[in-house]
Amino acid sequence: MQQAIREFVLNLGVDDVGFARAGDYQNPKSYEIRQFLPEAESFIVLAFKVLSSCESPSWSVALNGYMDLGAYAREASYKTARFLENRFNAKVATVPLSYPFEVRHDRRGIADFSQRHAAIAAGLGTFGRHNLVVHPRFGTRVNFVSIITDLELEPSPKIEQDLCIHCNLCVNNCPVKALEQEGKTNVAKCLKNALPYSLGTDIAFWTEFGAASPEEQKELLRSERYGRLHQAAHIGNQYMCFNCVKSCPVGVTAGQ
C-alpha cells in the first residue's frame, strides 16, 4: 500500500514524499492533529521544490512563483486524497500551504497546523538556524502540504544529520532582526515586515479614511497603498520578504 501511495504521488510530479504516525506530530503551539481528523493514524507530507522565479528581484514575479506553487500543491494534495479514498477506502483531511485558516486573537501568527513540524516528523528535513526546514536535496527552497489519514502507514526514517551549515546568513540578512534569538522567530517583527498589506494595515487605512475629508478620501482611494490593499484582499496574503530563504546557501544548485 505504502509503495503504491509513494509511486502515485511522485508520478504527479511531486518532488518528495514522507510518512509519519499521527503521534509523531509534535508542535505544542498548533492544534492537536486529531482535531483535523478524529480517526487520524498517520499523515503524508508532500514536498515541492520552489521555482527559481521565486527569487526574482521583481516582487510580482516572485509572488506569482509562490502562487503557482501553491495552486500546483493544492491540486496534487487533492488528487492524492482522492486516490487514498478511492483505492484504500481511507478517510482523509488535507492541510494546504496557506489560507483559509482560523483567525484568533489568542493565537496570532500561529498556524492551525505546522507543515514544518510535519515535514520533520516525516523524514523530509531538519530545522535550520532560520527555523525553516532544510531538505537534504532542496535545502530551504521547498514547501510542504500534508494529508492526514486513518490509514496505518510505516513512518519514514527521520533525518538525524544537521543539514544547516550555521553560516548565520539568514540571521544577518533579516531586515527586522527577527532571528536574533536562536530557535525562535519573532513572529510580530517578521510578519509586520513580510506582510505590509495585512489585516492590520487594512484597518489602519480605513480608520484614516473614515476621519478624512471627502477630498482626502478621494486621494486615499487613488493611492498606491489602497491599490495594494485591494489586491491583497482578493488574492490573499502577499509576502514581500523572502530574505531568510534567498540568503540560505544550502541546496542552491538543487533549488534552481
Score class of each variant (00 low, 15 high):
residue 2 Q to D: 11
residue 7 E to H: 12
residue 8 F to A: 01
residue 10 L to S: 08
residue 16 D to W: 05
residue 21 R to D: 11
residue 25 Y to N: 04
residue 25 Y to A: 05
residue 27 N to T: 06
residue 29 K to L: 15
residue 30 S to L: 00
residue 31 Y to S: 14
residue 35 Q to A: 13
residue 36 F to R: 02
residue 38 P to R: 11
residue 42 S to P: 03
residue 43 F to G: 04
residue 45 V to L: 07
residue 47 A to T: 01
residue 48 F to D: 06
residue 50 V to K: 12
residue 51 L to D: 15
residue 52 S to L: 10
residue 53 S to G: 08
residue 56 S to A: 14
residue 58 S to G: 04
residue 60 S to I: 11
residue 61 V to G: 01
residue 63 L to G: 00
residue 65 G to H: 04
residue 66 Y to G: 03
residue 67 M to A: 13
residue 68 D to S: 13
residue 69 L to C: 09
residue 73 A to P: 07
residue 73 A to I: 08
residue 74 R to V: 02
residue 75 E to D: 14
residue 76 A to P: 05
residue 77 S to F: 01
residue 77 S to C: 09
residue 78 Y to F: 14
residue 82 R to K: 14
residue 83 F to G: 05
residue 83 F to K: 04
residue 84 L to V: 06
residue 85 E to H: 08
residue 85 E to K: 15
residue 86 N to S: 14
residue 86 N to D: 15
residue 88 F to T: 06
residue 89 N to F: 11
residue 89 N to W: 05
residue 90 A to L: 11
residue 91 K to I: 01
residue 93 A to L: 03
residue 96 P to H: 08
residue 98 S to I: 01
residue 98 S to A: 08
residue 99 Y to D: 10
residue 101 F to P: 01
residue 103 V to W: 09
residue 103 V to H: 10
residue 107 R to T: 07
residue 124 L to D: 02
residue 124 L to S: 02
residue 125 G to R: 04
residue 126 T to K: 06
residue 127 F to K: 12
residue 133 V to M: 04
residue 140 T to P: 04
residue 140 T to Y: 09
residue 141 R to K: 15
residue 141 R to N: 10
residue 144 F to E: 00
residue 144 F to Q: 03
residue 145 V to N: 09
residue 146 S to T: 12
residue 151 L to Q: 10
residue 153 L to Y: 07
residue 154 E to T: 14
residue 155 P to N: 08
residue 156 S to P: 06
residue 156 S to K: 09
residue 156 S to L: 06
residue 157 P to C: 10
residue 157 P to S: 12
residue 159 I to L: 12
residue 159 I to S: 06
residue 160 E to A: 13
residue 163 L to S: 05
residue 163 L to H: 02
residue 163 L to C: 04
residue 171 V to P: 00
residue 176 V to G: 07
residue 178 A to N: 07
residue 179 L to W: 06
residue 179 L to Y: 07
residue 181 Q to D: 11
residue 181 Q to G: 00
residue 183 G to P: 08
residue 183 G to S: 10
residue 185 T to Q: 12
residue 190 C to K: 05
residue 192 K to W: 01
residue 194 A to H: 02
residue 194 A to K: 02
residue 197 Y to K: 06
residue 202 D to M: 13
residue 204 A to P: 00
residue 207 T to E: 15
residue 208 E to F: 01
residue 208 E to V: 00
residue 209 F to D: 07
residue 209 F to Q: 09
residue 212 A to C: 06
residue 221 L to K: 13
residue 222 R to G: 09
residue 222 R to W: 09
residue 226 Y to R: 11
residue 226 Y to M: 12
residue 229 L to E: 06
residue 232 A to C: 11
residue 233 A to V: 02
residue 236 G to L: 10
residue 236 G to H: 10
residue 237 N to I: 09
residue 238 Q to L: 13
residue 238 Q to H: 08
residue 239 Y to I: 13
residue 241 C to S: 11
residue 248 C to E: 01
residue 250 V to Q: 11
residue 252 V to S: 08
residue 256 Q to A: 08
